[in-house]
């Protein structure tokens, strides 16, 4: 037994996971807005080696996004204020999805809207479309009818969005939570009540960077969303908190650069993870994470990757 532990495990390990009814090859996905429409990365890796690709957030109509500057680097991270620029759900289905289908990877559509109706309309359009495995609802989006306060910071609005999407689609639903809240447990319960099949977190943390010479924001907007390794410890803590409340699977996101980072999230309670900003640094990161998790499992004698989830010793 001792020698087996030293040599690690021979033979196959099982990386597959079931996330709210989605059967995925492995727990590694790419985070929305950091992987384009997926196709752009086909030169760098075989996409079908990934658990799933989550595409750039889709709205009903195309959106132009914010003026530049839209990004600024900060210590171990970056701020962005892209402004949810996207080609719109119909152009995505018509122009991008056929190419993605050819790459034989599970595709999750990240969706958002300015009001509840827009969310449910986008979900309805995607329902039954061949090549979509699920939707991820981005609730970190300003609610135009409620004076621009994000849906994701108001539990009753968040529940309303999720239940509207639930009625509009038969696809598995992931609800992506904002970290910009006091108590994540309340949000978890709200979106579970709305009928979500899984939750993912965290989205970017609202943050600022100021040019002291000009006394202006370094972005065209006053604030932006912080991502990258700088947010990882916060994200791990929030995943752990969410896991303790949640009945549905939790997907961990935030600053994952390596397999070790991904494993940390899984131990905290994540059933799967998403790689975001790291895709910009090295377009092959997500594949490297898959391979690294597999090596870790062999080294630790773990047969099913799910055994890692929530294995934190307290």
């Amino acid at each position: 037994m001792a020698s087996k532990k030293r040599d690690g495990m021979r033979g196959a390990v099982d990386l597959s996971v079931d996330i709210g009814g989605m059967r995925l090859k492995n727990p590694v996905m790419t985070a929305s807005g950091t992987f384009g429409y997926g196709i752009e990365f086909a030169d760098y890796m075989d996409l079908k080696g990934l658990g799933a690709v989550v595409v750039k957030g889709l709205s009903l109509k195309p959106r132009a996004g914010n003026p530049p500057p839209r990004i600024v680097e900060t210590p171990c991270g970056m701020l962005n204020s892209i402004g949810l620029q996207n080609i719109g759900v119909e152009a995505f289905v018509r122009d991008k999805l056929p190419l993605l289908r050819g790459l034989r990877v599970s595709v999750i559509a990240n969706i958002f809207g300015e009001d509840v109706d827009e969310y449910s309309e986008v979900a309805r359009i995607l329902d039954g479309v061949r090549g979509i495995s699920g939707v991820e609802i981005n609730i970190s989006c300003p609610n135009v009818k409620k004076g621009g306060i994000a849906f994701g910071t108001d539990p009753s609005e968040a529940r309303r969005v999720v239940s509207a999407v639930r009625k509009a689609t038969t696809l598995p639903i992931i609800t992506k939570l904002s970290p910009n809240v006091g108590d994540i447990g309340t949000m978890v319960r709200a979106v579970e009540d709305g009928g979500t099949d899984a939750i993912s977190l965290i989205n970017t943390i609202t943050a600022m960077a100021i040019d002291i010479e000009r006394k202006t924001s370094k972005l065209s907007q006053p604030t932006g969303g912080l991502s990258g390794p700088a947010i990882k410890p916060i994200a791990v803590r929030m995943v752990w908190e969410a896991y303790r409340t949640a009945r549905v699977p939790v997907i961990g996101i935030g600053g994952i650069m390596t397999a070790d980072d991904a494993i940390e999230f899984m131990i905290a309670g994540a059933a799967a993870i998403q790689v975001g900003t790291a895709n910009f640094v090295n377009p092959r990161t997500a594949m490297d994470v898959v391979e690294g998790i597999e090596r870790y499992m062999k080294r630790h004698g773990i047969r099913k990757v799910g055994e890692l989830t929530g294995s934190l010793k307290v």
């Binding site: 950091t34 992987f35 839209r70 892209i82 620029q85 377009p283």
Partner: peptide, 8 residues
């Protein structure tokens, strides 16, 4: 590579 939409 055209995916972050940062360099608009």
């Amino acid at each position: 590579m055209g995916v972050c939409l940062g360099c608009a």
